[in-house]
């Protein structure tokens, strides 16, 4: 039997669940919106021109990119010590600890955000504690703003960063760090001169993956931002369901898809050149 046939189920699912909707989206993005807001069949790039020419689009793109980059950086930086700890643990604990690090993926993203709201809200755990300790008279605004989105997004990206780093650092021979120690390097020196340089490719991979996920994140900005934080994903949602301007929503979605594709190609090229 031809081995390619084994790919058939996956190809069919991908075609029905991803390629067809994307093609449909592409088609819609070429339609026209009439003056009264109704969609009219057409084959025009007018919607793209309108979206690209709009300063608001670029402001959104900037917000999205900086939010995703900041959260991806924080998630990767926070995941590193977790993974180093897992690596240093006795072998029989490693499996369980790895599972715990990625366990948040087993819980629905919405449920995790509800948890965050309970912790960060005006009457939440943190503000109640601060007030109880007499450290604050006014509640800290930790939700319904950019801070809340940053916290939520960082947390939701961490399991992915852990996943990439566990795989990447797992291949790092612990004997290298032992060798550094026998040569007189303190723990700090060993980390800076041996562990960190060798972990760099894995850290870059973790950052790029979480960045891409952060750029396309919708639920967290929507729920933790309380309608005050605007990114491309929330704008697409608003255009499609609030304004009901499907061609504009489709065009924006296609642009985002294109940008992410470029990022992925760059990432592949980067890792390839790092290996060579």
């Amino acid at each position: 039997m031809n081995a390619a046939l084994l790919l058939l189920p996956a190809v069919l699912i991908l075609a029905a669940g991803f390629l067809y909707p994307v093609a449909l989206l592409g088609r819609i993005s070429l339609n026209r919106t009439s003056d009264i807001g109704a969609m009219e069949p057409d084959l025009t790039l007018a919607t793209f021109e309108k979206v690209v020419g709009d300063d608001f689009t670029w402001e959104l793109a900037w917000n999205t990119a900086t939010l995703a980059a900041g959260s991806a950086l924080a998630a990767t930086a926070l995941a590193l010590p977790v993974v180093l700890l897992i690596r240093a643990a006795p072998p029989r604990w490693r499996g369980l600890l790895s599972l715990m690090a990625i366990a948040p993926l087993l819980v629905s993203g919405t449920a995790r955000i509800v948890g965050w709201l309970a912790i960060l809200g005006d009457q939440g755990l943190i503000n109640a504690a601060l007030e109880g300790l007499g450290l604050a008279t006014e509640p800290l605004r930790l939700i319904n703003n950019l801070t809340g989105v940053r916290i939520g997004l960082t947390e939701s990206l961490m399991p992915y960063a852990c996943l990439v780093l566990i795989a990447g650092l797992g291949r790092l021979d612990p004997r290298l760090e032992e060798a550094a120690a026998t040569l007189g390097a303190t723990r700090t020196k060993t980390f800076l001169r041996v562990t960190l340089p060798l972990a760099a490719p894995a850290l870059l991979a973790a950052f790029l993956l979480t960045f891409v996920l952060g750029v396309s994140a919708f639920i967290t900005p929507r729920l933790m931002g309380g309608g005050r934080v605007f990114v491309i994903a929330t704008e697409i949602f608003d255009l499609a369901l609030e304004t009901v301007d499907w061609p504009a929503a489709a065009a924006l979605a296609m642009l985002l898809l294109g940008a992410l594709a470029v990022a992925l190609v760059l990432r592949t090229a980067l890792t390839r050149s790092a290996r060579a």
Binding site: R175, L176, E178, L198
Partner: peptide
């Protein structure tokens, strides 16, 4: 070390 553990 058995694997030499040279810094790559």
């Amino acid at each position: 070390f058995q694997s030499y553990a040279l810094f790559p």
